[in-house]
Amino acid sequence: MTNNAILQIGLFVLAILACVKPLGLYMARVYSGHAPVLDRVLRPFERLIYRLCGVNTEQEMGWRQYAEAVIALSLISCVSVYAVERLQGVLPLNPDLLPAVSPDGAFNAAVSFASNTNWQSYSGETTMSYLTQMTALTVQNFLSAAVGMAVLIALIRGFTRENSATIGNFWVDLTRGILYILLPLSLILALILVSQGVVQTLRLHQQVALLEPTVDNEGHRVVTQQIAVGPAASQVAIKQLGTNGGGFFNANSSHPLENPTPLASFLELLAILLIPASLCYSFGELVGDRRQGWALLGAMTMVFLVLLAVTVVAEQRGNPVLSQLGIDQAASALQSGGNMEGKETRFGITDSALWAVATTAASNGSVNSMHDCYTPLGGLAPMWLMQLGEVVFGGVGSGLYGMLVFAIVTVFLAGLMVGRTPEYLGKKIGAFEMKMASLVIILPCAMVLLGTACGVACDQGRGAIFNPGPHGLSEVLYAFSSASNNNGSAFAGLAANSPFYNGLLGLAMLVGRYWVIIPVLATAGSLAAKKQVASGPGTLPTHTPLFVILLLAVIIVVGALSYFPALALGPVVEQLLLSN
C-alpha cells in the first residue's frame, strides 16, 4: 500500500469518526421527539403533514400494525413509480421526448428504488424523463431511506421498552426521519455539490462543439456532441446520504457532471457512510449505554478496514498476467501503477478501491469505477461485503438492524457455550427471536444462491453473460448478491436489461428487503413485550472487545460458510488461473 493510500484512507476514516458523535446524538434526539435547532423551524410543517395525512401522533402501533404500514407504503411506492415510468411519454418535464419505460424495466426500477436498492438496468439520461427522476426516483430515495431508519428505531424501542404492546408510530418515525435528518443534510450537500459543478437544471441536453472533431463509423465528420444535463445535484445528494446509489447518469459517480472535483468526490464518499456509522452512536444513546454503539461501530470498522486493505493491495499490485509479461505496474512519479482498467485516472487506485469498498459495505451501490475490471481478489472483497448481509455499516437503518440480528445470534451462541439463557441489553433471547434471526439471515442468502443458479442454468441467463468461465459466474453472482442484499451496484459485464433478469432481480430485491423487515419488526414486538432483566454474573457483557471478536466470528463464519463454494467457483478460481 502506498503512503498516499494510507494518508487518504486515514483522513477518510478520521472524518467519518469525527461526525459520528454529533450526528448520532442529533438523530437520537430527533427520534426521541426533540430535534435541536430545527424544531422551531420545521415543527409547523411536521404538524401540517400529520393533519393533512390524518395521522394521530398519540396512537402507537404494535409490530403487526407497524409492519402493515411499511407494506402499505411500499406497495403504493412501487405502483406509483411504475405508473410514472410508464406514462412519462405523455407527462410534462420531458424535454428530450423520452418514450415510456418498458414494462419489465419499469417493474425493476420501481421495485429497485422503493426497496432502497437502486439497481439500474437502464441508462438514466436516455431512459428517465426529468419528471420521473424527480418525482418518482428521488422521492423514493428519501422514503426508502426513512423506512430503513424507522424500522431500526422500532427495533431499538423493542430493547428499551418493557411489557409494552407497541413499538412506536411508523408514520411519525418516517416523517421525522425525512424532515429533520434526510432533507436538511441533502439540502446542504446538494448546494455544495452545485458549487463544485454538479449539474442542476431543467434545460434540454446541451449541444457543444467538439475540441477535436472526429469521424463516425460511416466516415461522416462529427463536430458537435450532445451532453446530457438535468436536475442531478438534488438526486446525487440523497442517493449518497440515503445509501440509495442510483445515479442520475449511467456512468454514476464516475461521470464528471455527477462527481466533478476532489472535494465533491470526498464529500460524496463521506456521505455514503455518514448516517450508517452515526446511527451506531444513536443506538448507544437510545439504549442508555453508548459503549454498546461503539462496540458495534468497532466491529463494522474492523471488517471494513481489512477488506479495504485487501482491495487496495490487490489493485495496486496489478494484473498478474501483465506482471508475467514483464510490464512495470509499480507506482511511481510517472504512473499510478496497479490495475487501472475500468478506473478513472483522476481517482486512481486508492479512491476507486475506497469507493468500491464503501459503496458495497454501506448498501449504497453508486460506483466511480467498474467493478467488473477489478482483479479477481479486488472484486471479491466488495462482493463478499454485500454477501455478509450488508451489516458492515450497511444501508441507513437496515445495516444496523442487520447487525443487531447478528448480535442476537452471537449472544445465543455464547449462551449455549456456558449453558445460560442468552440475553442482550437486558432482554432474554428466546426461541422466537432466534427463528426470526434465522429468517433474516437465510432469506437473502437463499435468494442470492438460487437466483445465481437460475441465471447460469437458463439459456436467457447465460446468454446475457459477456465473459466465459469463472468471471462470467462472478458477474451473475455479483448481480444477485447486489439485488438480494439491496446494494444496487453492478459488476457490469451482464446484459441485465431483459425481462428475465429484470423480473428475477426484482423479486430478489423485494425478498431481500421486505421479508427481512417483517421478521425484524416481529423481533421488535416480541422484545418490547418482555420485561427487562438486571445483568448478573452469568450475563455476557456486550460492549467488550471479547464480544466484538465473537460477533465478527459469527458474521464471518456465516458469510464464509454460505458463500465459499460459490466464491470458490468464481473469483477464487479466477485469481488462481491468473496467478498460474
Binding site: 403487526r64 409492519a67 402493515e68 407494506i71 411500499s74 406497495l75 412501487c78 405502483v79 411504475y82 410508464r86 414494462p103 419489465d104 419499469a106 417493474f107 420501481a110 421495485v111 428466546g430 426461541a431 422466537f432 427463528k435 426470526m436 423480473g503 426484482g506 423479486l507 423485494l510 421486505y514 421479508w515 417483517i518 421478521p519 416481529a522 414486538g525 416480541s526
Partner: peptide, 30 residues
C-alpha cells in the same frame, strides 16, 4: 403486459401480509 407486472407487485405484498400473520401466529404459539 402492465397487468402482469403490477399483479406481480401486488401478489408479492399480499404474500408478505400472509407472512406477517403467519409470524404473528408463530409468536402466539411460542
Amino acid at each position: 403486459m402492465d397487468i402482469v407486472w403490477l399483479a406481480g407487485i401486488i401478489a408479492f405484498f399480499g404474500v408478505s401480509l400472509l407472512m406477517l400473520h403467519l409470524l404473528s401466529f408463530l409468536r402466539s404459539e411460542d
